[in-house]
């Protein structure tokens, strides 16, 4: 099998240039590529367009890249947990495109699957519809939405093999599979890198064809945004 292993996050992101369009997997802080975000921070690459469902929190996830002013534009569905984001948006320092979450997911999926546009009912009659083609199918109105593709997609999985096959865990899957397919170059960071043959082919979530670089990350913090517990089981 093709070996796609790179040494570490720094090696994986080393050729990401200024003004690149990135997709970053994750929902909230769940399933985000922590190692690569830190490597981008260290590298200091600027003018990034980040396609990600959320924008992290002030001091973790994409919030770190916002704070260091490395992000020019965010394309997201919900950015409510980030005060620095809100400040940069209201002051006009940051461009933001807010997209319905299902539309964002499908636009990424379409990008990876070679479908340039599709119709969805989400956002019809709202400001999201401004400038978009509307068409009626079986009596209901739909908006035309375009695919999204990225120069680099950065995803996080639980396990991966050296040829790029990935397995996610729990709700950390979220946007990662579609984004993996929609990047010209896709980088996967995994908690555990295993040899080819160690993963059950019946249970691969992202086939290795979508992955160009893979490495085993380290020091995962996996921060929890809202810890909610119950007293009894």
């Amino acid at each position: 099998m093709i070996n796609k292993v790179v040494a570490n996050a720094e090696g994986a992101v080393k050729d990401i240039p200024d003004n690149a369009v990135l997709m970053l997997g994750g929902f909230g802080l769940c399933g985000i590529p922590e190692n690569c975000i830190n490597a981008l921070l260290k590298k200091g690459v600027k003018g990034l367009t980040c396609i990600s469902n959320n924008a992290g929190v002030d001091d973790f996830g994409i919030g770190l890249l916002l704070k260091s002013r490395q992000v020019k534009k965010m394309i997201s569905s919900y950015v409510g947990e980030n005060a620095e984001f809100e400040r940069q948006l209201l002051s006009g320092e940051l461009e933001v495109e807010l997209i319905p979450q299902g539309t964002l997911a499908e636009r990424c999926r379409a990008g990876g699957a070679g479908i340039p546009a599709f119709f969805t009912p989400a956002g019809y009659g709202t400001e999201v519809a401004e400038g978009k083609e509307v068409r009626e199918f079986d009596g209901k109105k739909y908006l035309m939405e375009h695919w999204l593709r990225a120069d680099f997609s950065i995803v996080k999985a639980w396990k991966g093999d050296t040829s790029g096959n990935l397995v996610y865990r729990g709700t950390a899957r979220n946007f990662n599979p579609m984004m993996a397919a929609a990047g010209k170059i896709t980088i996967a960071e995994v908690e555990e890198l295993v040899p080819v043959g160690a993963l059950d082919p019946n249970n691969i979530h992202t086939p290795g064809i979508y992955i160009q670089r893979i490495f085993q990350g380290k020091n995962y913090e996996k921060r929890i945004e809202q810890k909610t517990v119950s007293k009894s089981a």
């Binding site: 769940c30 469902n53 865990r169 709700t171 899957r173 996996k222 809202q226 810890k227 909610t228």
Partner: peptide, 22 residues
């Protein structure tokens, strides 16, 4: 690795299924 859409930590019922956002 197990949160709801409000980003709260949760559990899964027996018979649950997991999938992508798409």
């Amino acid at each position: 690795d197990l949160i709801n859409a409000g980003k709260q930590t949760i559990t899964m019922m027996p018979g649950s299924s997991l999938f992508s956002s798409a």
